[in-house]
């Protein structure tokens, strides 16, 4: 389990990509960012991350420095990657379908963009977002105008 912090010290040297003329290093943060971008584009994903991460994310959004790897944690080996993602799904989507779609999107993105093999993508759906959650206006008040 690798924690995602702004300055990750862990990185991976991919043997397959190293040639006699140098080596390629891919940071964990690159992998988690790619996974995050792929996951948040999936239909039915409202947000990535748990409660605390999303509260912090709201502040980051306000100062326009969105953390694209929010809710994503990766474990990068020599040639393989394992990913854990926590997300909030949009009601009324089928949760298993969202999870499968996210898993597919993340695997595709990492394997094509990074070129490492994905062993597993574990997904935690920690909340469901209802459209009515954004509705702060009192219905009685809305009727007045």
């Amino acid at each position: 389990m690798t924690n995602i912090d702004p300055t990750p010290h862990t990185s991976t040297v991919i043997d397959g990509l190293s040639t006699g003329t140098g080596k390629t290093v891919i940071h964990d943060s690159v992998v988690s960012k790619i996974a995050g971008i792929a996951a948040r584009e999936v239909t039915g994903v409202y947000a990535l991350g748990g409660g605390a991460a999303r509260a912090l994310g709201a502040i980051r959004n306000a100062i326009s420095s969105t953390d694209l790897s929010q809710g994503v944690s990766v474990e990068v080996g020599e040639t393989q990657v394992a990913v854990d993602i926590s997300l909030v799904a949009e009601y009324p989507i089928e949760l298993q379908k969202v999870a499968d779609d996210v898993r597919f999107a993340v695997i595709t993105a990492i394997e094509t963009l990074v070129g490492m093999q994905v062993t597993e993508v574990n997904i935690t759906i920690n909340d469901v977002h209802m459209a009515s959650d954004d509705d702060d206006t009192d219905p009685a008040e809305a009727r007045v105008q």
């Binding site: 990913v83 949760l95 298993q96 999870a99 499968d100 898993r103 695997i107 994905v118 062993t119 597993e120 993508v121 574990n122 997904i123 935690t124 759906i125 920690n126 909340d127």
Partner: peptide, 9 residues
């Protein structure tokens, strides 16, 4: 589900 588990809290 291949390659990973899904957990619903």
């Amino acid at each position: 589900v291949p390659r990973g588990r899904t957990r619903i809290t």
